[in-house]
């Protein structure tokens, strides 16, 4: 068996085993409900479709949660404030409304039109950009940091997931 095929089979077996539930381990910094809110937020930024994966499949909220214990530690208060604020705007139903409805709300925050009492003087613009960049990193970045689960985005883009030429089968080979 080629080395690469072995890895694919092995990783498939591992993820398959404990994956009856969507989240196999608890989040590190976010509470259960904060995590659900963040996931709904990320899902609107990079929606899943029938044909292609989105933030959910890539586990971008997992990436963010892990980084909030490390490099993004300083952003924790901003995350907590933003996740609470978006729930307040929807009467605690942000995770239940449709992706289209979430998109309309997030477009307001992106433009800085959030209620200043809830979002601060910039109406949410800065924290929106922060979460957008982190979500994109978790979607398109290296899986080693907890996002891009099973290389879903790289597969979608059509680039070889084995990251080093000479170590695996090149594209089209």
């Amino acid at each position: 068996m080629k080395r690469r095929s072995f890895f694919l089979v092995a990783s498939g077996a591992l993820t398959g085993a404990g994956c009856g539930h969507r989240r196999s381990a608890p989040f590190r910094t976010l509470s259960e409900s904060e995590a659900a809110t963040l996931e709904a937020w990320c899902d609107a930024l990079i929606p899943s479709t029938d044909g292609t994966p989105g933030a959910k499949e890539a586990r971008t909220s997992r990436y963010i949660d892990i980084q909030l214990t490390r490099r993004f530690r300083k952003f924790r208060p901003q995350y907590q404030q933003a996740l609470a604020a978006i729930e307040k705007m929807t009467g605690g139903r942000f995770t239940e409304i449709s992706v289209e409805e979430r998109t309309v709300l997030l477009e307001k925050i992106e433009k800085g039109e959030g209620d200043k009492a809830l979002w601060g003087p910039d109406g949410g613009r800065e924290v929106f950009n922060l979460i957008l960049q982190h979500t994109l990193q978790g979607f398109y970045g290296n899986p080693r940091h907890g996002g891009n689960h099973d290389y879903v985005s790289w597969r979608m883009l059509g680039i070889p997931v084995v990251p080093v030429r000479g170590r695996g089968v090149a594209y089209g080979a």
Partner: peptide, 14 residues
């Protein structure tokens, strides 16, 4: 961001 942003990446990255 949103679906159109993802579709753009998907079609044009390569």
């Amino acid at each position: 961001w949103g679906l159109a942003a993802k579709e753009f990446m998907k079609r044009n990255y390569t």
